[in-house]
């Protein structure tokens, strides 16, 4: 979806909430994936993604077109929700089930839902090395967690990360560089050196005068 299309959809959705369905369909998967990889917990990820989209729908009228994409806006809401979750370790009182029940809606696919959760949990269990790495990121200060997760889990470019986190590109580059160094140190024991994936930083930060660690 290009920015022009996004702008049109936002305009429509502000008048007619049905159009929000298109935004939801387009971004549910990526936002859920991001939250899941940050939290490492399927139930929490489901709660946070629900809260993210409810907040987005609720705040749609506030969304002003300042060249920030819907995607970045949703990532920003999700990031704030994740941070809140970790800061307070708050138990999300939000419940999709309660919401549906209050609305008088019964959904009869309980079994599908449980299967989905179990499948995803099994997938998380399989990714042992990733779990350890995620834990190391989680031990870093929040600002580094954010940039590293967006860069390495979501493959976001520096410009996108800056847009999502509402920071200057230079700040993001510096945090990315510093965070990567801290993480590398932390992961040192896990890190084989001969099969490293190389990321072209020109692609992620074309104007960067910064020479990152190699």
């Amino acid at each position: 979806m290009d920015k022009h299309q996004e702008k049109e959809i936002i305009k429509q959705a502000q008048k007619d909430p049905e159009a929000f369905g298109a935004i939801f369909e387009e971004y549910y998967g990526s936002i859920f994936g991001y939250i899941l990889k940050r939290t490492g917990n399927v139930h929490v990820a489901q709660d946070i993604v629900s809260e993210t989209f409810f907040k987005a729908l609720d705040r749609l009228w506030q969304f002003k077109w300042r060249n920030i994409s819907i995607s970045s806006w949703l990532y920003r809401i999700a990031t704030n929700e994740i941070n809140q979750y970790f800061r307070k370790q708050k138990k999300h009182t939000y419940s999709l089930e309660a919401m549906l029940k209050t609305s008088g809606i019964e959904i009869s696919d309980e079994r599908d839902m449980l299967e989905e959760i179990m499948e995803q949990e099994a997938e998380l269990e399989r990714a042992v090395a990733w779990k350890q790495a995620r834990q190391r990121i989680h031990e870093l200060p929040e600002k580094y967690q954010e940039v590293l997760s967006l860069r390495f889990f979501e493959d976001k470019k520096v410009t996108e990360i800056a847009e999502i986190l509402n920071r200057k590109e230079g700040t993001v580059k510096a945090q990315l560089s510093r965070g990567t160094a801290m993480l590398r140190e932390s992961l040192h024991e896990m890190q084989p050196t001969d099969a490293e994936r190389v990321i072209d930083t020109d692609a992620i930060s074309p104007a960067s005068p910064h020479k990152p660690n190699v």
Partner: peptide, 26 residues
């Protein structure tokens, strides 16, 4: 060309598996 080595080079992140049911409910 500036190069940055990903600390996650050899780590495979988990896939997002089926989400149809939760997505529909939401």
């Amino acid at each position: 060309m500036n190069k940055e080595i990903s600390p996650f080079n050899t780590i495979t992140p988990p896939r997002v598996t089926r989400t149809r049911s939760h997505k529909r409910r939401l």
